[in-house]
């Protein structure tokens, strides 16, 4: 589904990604973790070409994103993405947030888009908030709407870029619950997150990044059981201490 081959990226002289290679198979849930500044968010944004890269290749569903002939809007419409800061459109109601891309990108009719949007809103438990604006919702609620907005496009896979990092602790679980449910339904997912509980529960593989490189790419059991690299061991020791 997603193949990342030898991707390197520089900001000027500064190399942010070094020769990253990994795969996400259909139906697989892959968690990407690592210390801040390790390039996790940059890597996941390369998957739908929000961040350009200078070397290597990313192939999504058979299509190379770095190819200048690729119709990026069309490809991105098939890849759902959820951001750290939700990024709902503040001037639109929740309903409009859920339908605007369905109508303008996929060309669905208003009725159909609304139907789909409200169904997904119900699924994330927020049906009663349909006519509110994002600014009137809590962070956790906004992130659940953002997930519903991505799902409304019927994506073939979902990218999560630190979806719970900007949330107050008491709101993290309501978002993770939605993600767990999604994983169990067989959605292909690539998640940048520090939530190791989530990784243990649903991930098939865990990727550990440090200083722009993929240091460890292992099955969940191997990663939590016996990480090869010292850096991954240190990282786990630090975040699992408490």
């Amino acid at each position: 589904m997603i193949a990342i081959n030898n991707v390197s990226k520089w900001y000027g002289d500064f190399q942010v990604l070094t020769d990253c290679t990994t795969r996400v198979a259909k139906g697989e849930v892959v968690v990407v973790c690592g210390p801040s500044g390790s390039g996790k968010s940059t890597l996941i944004k390369c998957v739908n070409a929000l961040e350009p890269f200078q070397k290597g290749s990313v192939v999504v569903n058979g299509i190379a994103v770095e190819n200048t002939k690729t119709n990026l809007p069309r490809l991105r419409a098939q890849v759902g993405m959820v951001f750290q800061h939700f990024e709902l459109f503040p001037h639109m109601t929740i309903t409009q947030n859920l339908t605007v891309a369905q109508i303008k990108v996929l060309g669905r009719g208003k009725e159909e888009a609304l139907d789909k949007g409200l169904k997904l809103l119900d699924r994330v438990g927020l049906k009663s908030q349909a006519d509110k604006f994002p600014g009137q919702l809590s962070g956790g609620q906004q992130q659940r709407v953002a997930i519903a907005r991505a799902l409304a496009m019927d994506p073939i896979c979902m990218l999560f870029d630190e979806p719970t990092s900007a949330l107050d602790p008491e709101m993290i679980n309501e978002v993770l619950d939605v993600m767990v449910q999604l994983a169990r339904e067989g959605m292909t997912m690539m998640c940048v997150t520090h939530e190791m509980g989530f990784a243990r529960k649903v991930a098939h593989r865990v990727i550990f990044m440090d200083q722009g490189a993929i240091v460890e790419d292992a099955t969940k059991d191997d990663f939590f059981g016996k990480p090869h690299s010292e850096r991954a061991q240190n990282f786990l020791a630090k975040i699992l201490q408490h």
Binding site: K45, N48, L50, L72, P73, R74, R76, A77, Q78, V79, G80, M81, F83, Q84, H85, E87, L88, F89, V100, A101, K104, V105, L106, R149, A150, M153
Partner: peptide, 14 residues
């Protein structure tokens, strides 16, 4: 925020 543009692009907007 830069993320607003990203969010639009990620949904398939030109």
């Amino acid at each position: 925020s830069r993320g607003q543009r990203f969010a639009g692009l990620a949904l398939g907007f030109t």
